[in-house]
């Protein structure tokens, strides 16, 4: 406060100035309180804008009624050996197949190290379980292959066919074997297995 009235703010040495003078005298490498306030206000506004936008984005995610449909119970008593049914779970087809002894034996004979996708893709097991035939089914239920019938390439539904006693995708020619593992074509992964458990001898809860 010692500066004469005639002296402009810029003439005053910084250490002598009051708050206002300090603000106006700041240099680029010495941020002032006003710089801090600008940044803080701007950042606060940005957070507010993001918070406002979020409901508009999140409304597109699956809604509560869709999530509520996420588990079904089915009766597989009527599925004979070598037969397959398709049930709908979360809008997707799930193949439930009682495999023949030959299909099981052939699937077991395949070395896991020769497979393109060596992950069992089975959420009922720990992640990274190897894609053995046993890991593709539930313990003690090796005849039952339960898998999501959606090609891991671009989402078409494979039909029975191909050269591996399994499934052939009509869209881009991916072939899966009798354990639903990818053997040929553009698909990167084995057919995924849904979370499921046997709740009785012929009852399965999917989801």
């Amino acid at each position: 406060m010692a500066a004469s009235p005639a002296a402009g703010y810029d003439d005053r040495p910084e250490d002598e100035g009051d708050d206002v003078a300090t603000t106006l005298n700041h240099t680029a490498d010495e941020p002032s309180r006003r710089d801090f306030l600008y940044l803080a206000t701007g950042a606060f506004g940005l957070v507010g804008a993001a918070a406002t936008i979020w409901p508009f984005i999140d409304q597109m995610n699956p809604d509560a009624s869709t999530l509520a449909l996420s588990s079904i119970e089915i009766d597989i008593g009527g599925v004979a050996v070598g037969q397959e049914i398709t049930v709908k779970w979360r809008g997707k087809p799930v193949f439930v197949r009682q495999r023949t002894a030959k299909e099981i034996a052939d699937a077991k004979a395949v070395e896991v190290s020769t497979l393109r996708d060596q992950n069992a893709q089975n959420p009922n097991l720990p992640a990274n379980s190897p894609a053995t035939d046993a890991n593709r089914t539930a313990p003690g239920k090796e005849a039952w292959l339960i898998q999501i019938g959606i090609c891991t390439h671009l989402g078409c539904v494979p039909n029975r066919g191909g050269t591996y006693e399994g499934w052939l995708c009509p869209c881009h020619g991916s072939q899966y074997d009798s354990a639903g593992r990818i053997r040929q074509g553009p698909a990167p992964e084995n057919l995924h297995i849904p979370p499921y458990q046997f709740t009785g001898p012929t009852k399965v809860k999917i989801g």
Binding site: I57, M60, P62, T66, R90, G91, K92, G155, C156
Partner: peptide, 30 residues
């Protein structure tokens, strides 16, 4: 289905983006 599944090829967030586009677990009413 095929075109929206193109987004599932994006590493890490691909599946979340596809579900978000669908509003479900497959192409459907939403």
């Amino acid at each position: 289905t095929v075109i929206t599944n193109l987004f599932s090829a994006i590493p890490i967030v691909g599946d979340a983006i596809t579900t978000w586009l669908w509003g479900g677990f497959a192409v459907g009413d939403a």
